[in-house]
Each structure stands twice: as C-alpha cells, then as structure tokens.
C-alpha cells in the first residue's frame, strides 16, 4: 500500500514527536548546524517541508544521513521544534523502505580493515542507522 505525502508527513510528526507548526522560521537550526554544507536540505527546510506535507523529495535525499544527531538544533531552537528529531524521522522512514538504505552491513568489514582504530560505538551506530 502506498501512502500519500500528507499521510507520510503525519507519520513523521507522530514518530518525531515534533510540533512543526511551532516553527517561527527564524533559521537558528540551520545557523547552528555543523552538517549544513553536507545536506541537500537544511534543518529549517525539513521542518517547513514536513509541515507542508512535501515529503517525497526529502525521502529520496541521500544526504539525510549526514545529519550528525548532535542535537545542537534541538538545544538552540527557540520554539522547541526539535528539528533533529524531524530529520531522524525522515531517515527512519527511508530506512524502513525496502532498499531504502544507502549503507549496508556488507560494507562494514572493509571499513574495519581500512582503519583499525574505529571504535565499536561507530560500527554499532552504523548498523543501527543504516539498514538493509
């Protein structure tokens, strides 16, 4: 069953727990984002696009995985919107689609061989955040 954009936006609001309508469009999330330059859509755009139900483009965007989940936007948002939670919810929905992940566990052994210092924590994170 295929959900339409508005329905997916509803799920994102639900699982992110974020009230995107509280956004006053100040842009502080994007002002503080250390991954701004790496992401096609910026935190403030995520919030606005989810509020408007424009989800398809967000779901297709691979750079969503560049969000560091550093929660600087969550901490500094004057409206309590929690943009990082919105980004995470979009990413989770993309991962839940069959083949929606752009990072698969098979890639991991090569990473370990390439750099022996990589901590387990990063590898586990990789498994957790990028699924088949």
């Amino acid at each position: 069953m295929k959900l339409d954009e508005k329905e997916i936006a509803g799920i994102i609001k639900e699982i992110s727990g974020s009230d995107v309508k509280k956004c006053m469009k100040c842009g502080k999330c994007s002002a503080t984002c250390p991954a701004y330059g790496e992401m096609k859509f910026h935190p403030h755009q995520f919030v606005t696009m989810v509020a408007r139900g424009k989800i398809d483009e967000l779901l297709k965007d691979e750079t969503v995985t560049r969000c560091l989940s550093c929660f600087a936007c969550v901490e500094r948002c004057p409206r309590g919107v929690e943009p990082a939670n919105v980004v995470a919810a979009v990413r989770v929905l993309a991962e839940r689609e069959q083949g929606g992940s752009n990072f698969v566990p098979d890639e991991v052994p090569a990473l370990i061989i390439a750099d022996k210092e990589i901590p387990q924590q990063a590898l586990v994170s990789a498994f957790r955040r990028y699924r088949k």
Binding site: I15, S16, A84, A88, Q121, V124, S125, R128
Partner: peptide
C-alpha cells in the same frame, strides 16, 4: 548487552 550506541529517536522504536 550493548546499549545500541545511538538513542532511537523515533517514538515507535
């Protein structure tokens, strides 16, 4: 056991 390394933000997780 491993804590999971990242906090699962999505509320339905």
């Amino acid at each position: 056991q491993c804590c999971g390394a990242v906090y699962p933000i999505a509320r339905d997780e």
